[in-house]
């Protein structure tokens, strides 16, 4: 049954079987989409239609559907997570689009994020960067000090918390004209560097994480600020400046050769 304000849309979607073959944009029509539905619900409707027609549904990452997990990595109409600020794709609603509009839906584009299938990319590069130093080493002897017993200035705690809200979605890489991962890595470096627990390993951490970032093939930061604008969690460029300071000072003072 069609509704009075249902949207009829043309979708141009990137289809790619796997990372070995070339992909291409395919055109689909969806009709009578409720403006109140989320973008992912619209994708579900498209997939139901494709399955009913015997076709291959569009593969896309999704999990929590409430803006926390960072899975839904779609480049919609030329922007990461589509129009709107500080939202993920699951928080994007169809009321942002007009009836009859053509919507381009593409995966994150970066050499370091190879396409697995359609709109799903492998963001394992972020995991390897985290494994290179994005943690605080603690022993498990049972005598770990209570974090609340360590005085931390409120301003530092707030900045660390803001940095830690990064969900590692990769929108920064997708939006950056250079596919740079600086906003993600700087958020992870900052959330530890600002806290006393993280300061112990701060120098080695930043050196190792930046090294891993470079090894993964991300581009360099041109300070365009696109990442900050498109970040669903509003991670600030302050973090990139902090990582630059941390990295340069660690380069000259760390024991690591």
């Amino acid at each position: 049954m069609s509704t009075a304000n249902g949207l009829n849309l043309t979708l141009k979607v990137w289809r790619q079987k796997n990372d070995k073959v070339k992909g291409q944009m395919e055109t689909y029509q969806v009709s009578d989409i409720s403006p109140d539905s989320s973008f992912l619900e619209m994708m579900d409707i498209l997939n139901e239609k494709l399955i009913n027609e015997g076709g291959d549904p569009v593969a896309f990452d999704h999990d929590c559907r409430e803006g926390i997990c960072g899975s839904c990595s779609m480049y919609i109409n030329g922007e990461a997570h589509g129009p709107g600020r500080e939202i993920t794709t699951c928080q994007l609603h169809m009321r942002e689009f007009k009836n009859g509009e053509t919507i381009y839906i593409e995966p994150w584009r970066a050499k370091a994020f190879p396409v697995i299938k359609d709109l799903v990319v492998d963001r394992g590069a972020f995991d390897r960067i985290m494994a290179a130093g994005g943690f605080v080493s603690v022993n498990t002897s049972g005598n770990t000090q209570d974090a609340n017993a360590i005085p931390i200035p409120k301003a530092d705690a707030d900045k660390a918390f803001d940095a830690a809200t990064c969900i590692g979605c990769g929108a920064c890489v997708a939006s950056c004209k250079n596919s740079s991962a600086m906003l993600f890595v700087s958020a992870k470096v900052s959330q530890f560097a600002l806290l006393p627990q993280g300061k112990v390993e701060a120098k080695e951490r930043v050196l190792n994480m930046v090294q891993q970032m470079d090894d993964e093939g991300f581009g360099n930061c041109s300070n365009t600020g696109a990442c900050e604008v498109e970040c669903p969690k509003g991670i600030s460029l302050d973090n990139i400046a902090r990582m630059n300071r941390e990295y340069l000072s660690a380069s000259f003072t760390a024991d690591k050769k």
Binding site: K12, W14, M25, Y75, N77, G78, Y104, E106, R109, A110, K111, A112, K177, N178, S179, S180, G217, F218, G219, N220, S222
Partner: peptide
């Protein structure tokens, strides 16, 4: 930087 993105966005 150009090499870091092999395929450009259609939009």
């Amino acid at each position: 930087n150009r090499n870091a993105r092999a395929i450009k966005y259609a939009m």
